[in-house]
Amino acid sequence: MIWLSGRQFRAPAITGAIGLTIFAAAMVVIGLRIRAAGDPAGYQSLVYALDALVVVAPAPLGLFWGAPLIARELETGTAALVWTQSVTRRRWLAVKLAVAAVAALIVGGLASLALGWAAAPLDRVNQDRFTTIFFGTRGPVLAAYAVFAVVLGVTLGLLLRRTLPAMALTAATFVVVQVLMPNLVRPHLMPPRAATAPVTAAVIRNLTFLGQEPTIEGLKIPGAWVTASSDLRTANDQEVAREKYAACVNGSFDGMPDCLGRLNLHVDIAYQPADRYWTFQWLESAVYLALAALLAAIAGIRVIRVTV
C-alpha cells in the first residue's frame, strides 16, 4: 500500500522537488548578494516580496496535493477497487495522508530554512521577526502550515467527493485560518508582559499612525511584539490634555515630533519579548498540527461511511 501510494504521488512529488530546488538555488544567489552588499536594507523590497510569496505557498499544496488525493479516486471509482484488495479503508486513507503530509512537511521546512538563511542579514538589522508576514516564513510554522493545508485538502476532498469544489473550499478555508490565527489566536498563546514606553521625538518619527486622537500605532521594541498600547499619557500618568496634543498635531509637520517630545509622554504597553519568539513558533506549529490531526480523525470517521 505504501509503494502504491508513493507511485500515485510520484508526479506531485517530482513537481514539488523541482520547484523547491529552483527556489533553494535562487535563495543561495540572493543570500550571497545580500551578504556581499554593504547595506542589506537595499534588498528589503525583494525580501518582502519573497516572504509574501512563501507565506501563501502552503495553499497550492492543499489545492493540488491534498484536495485531489481522495476526491479524484472517489470520482473515478478507483478507491472501490483498492478496498476490495484486502486493504481497509482507514489504512488506505492513513497511508495516503502520511505520504502527502510528510512531503508537505519536507517542502515547508526546507523552504523556510532556505529563505531564513538568505534573509538572515536583513532580519538581524530589522529585528521584527514577530511581524505577521515574517513570522509565517521563518522557523517550523511554515512546515506546520503546509501539513495543515494538505490534510485540509484531503479531508474536504473526502467530504465533498468532488475535486474542483474541494480545491475551492480548501483555498478559502486556508485563507480564513491564516487571517484568524495572527489576529485572534497568536496574541493569546502566552500572557503578555506589561511595561511603560517613553514616547520621544524619535519614537514619533517612526510611528505608522498619529491622528487627531491621542493614540499611536506602530510602536516598536527591537525584536519584540507590541500587542497593545494605551492612549498617550503624561509624566503623572494622566491622559495628555487634548488641547496640548492638538496644538502639536495641527502645527508644523516637521516640528510635530519635537513638540510632542517636549510633553514628556509615555504609553503603557503589553508586549511579547524577543526571547519568546521560538516558543511562539513551536506553540503555533502545535496548534496547526493539532488541527491537522483533528481533520485526519474526521476523515477517518467519514471514510467508513463513504458509499461507492
Results as ranks from 00 to 15, higher is better:
Ala144Pro: 06
Val249Trp: 03
Val199Gln: 01
Pro68Thr: 06
Ala17Asp: 09
Ala293Cys: 05
Val54Cys: 10
Asp254Phe: 15
Pro222Ser: 07
Ala149Asp: 05
Leu207Phe: 05
Ile18Thr: 02
Val175Glu: 01
Gly300Trp: 15
Val99Trp: 10
Leu63Ser: 01
Val199Met: 01
Leu210Tyr: 12
Ala59Lys: 05
Asp51Gln: 14
Thr137Pro: 04
Val102Lys: 06
Met27Thr: 07
Leu219Met: 02
Tyr145Ser: 13
Tyr43His: 09
Asp254Glu: 15
Asn236Lys: 02
Ala67Gln: 05
Arg302Val: 00
Arg90His: 09
Met256Pro: 02
Glu243Lys: 03
Ile216Pro: 01
Val95Phe: 07
Arg193His: 13
Leu46Ser: 10
Ala228Glu: 14
Pro60Cys: 12
Ala103Trp: 04
Val125Ile: 11
Thr155Arg: 00
Thr196Cys: 13
Asp258Gly: 00
Gly77Pro: 08
Ala104Ile: 05
Ser252Pro: 02
Gly42Trp: 04
Ile106Asn: 00
Ala80Thr: 04
Leu142Phe: 08
Phe253His: 07
Tyr288Thr: 00
Tyr288Leu: 12
Pro165Lys: 08
Leu69Met: 14
Arg91Ile: 15
Ala80Gln: 05
Tyr245Pro: 03
Ala52Arg: 08
Ile30Trp: 04
Phe209Leu: 01
Ser45Arg: 14
Ala228Val: 02
Ala246Ser: 11
Asp275Phe: 04
Ile301Gln: 15
Ile2Met: 15
Ala166Asp: 05
Val203Cys: 04
Val176Ala: 14
Trp83Met: 14
Ala197Asn: 03
Leu265Tyr: 10
Leu46Gln: 03
Gly16Ser: 15
Leu61Val: 10
Asp254Ile: 14
Val240Cys: 07
Arg233Tyr: 14
Pro198His: 09
Ile70Cys: 00
Val54Ala: 07
Ala118Gly: 02
Ala197His: 11
Ala103Asn: 07
Val102His: 03
Leu97Phe: 11
Arg193Glu: 14
Pro182Asp: 03
Leu81Val: 09
Ile34Pro: 01
Tyr145Asp: 13
Phe23Asn: 06
Trp282Cys: 02
Val150Met: 02
Tyr145Cys: 11
Arg276Val: 13
Leu110Arg: 02
Phe9Cys: 05
Glu73Val: 00
Gly218Arg: 04
Leu74Met: 12
Leu115Ser: 02
Ala25Ser: 07
Ala235Met: 01
Val303Thr: 10
Pro222His: 09
Leu63Phe: 11
Ala201Thr: 06
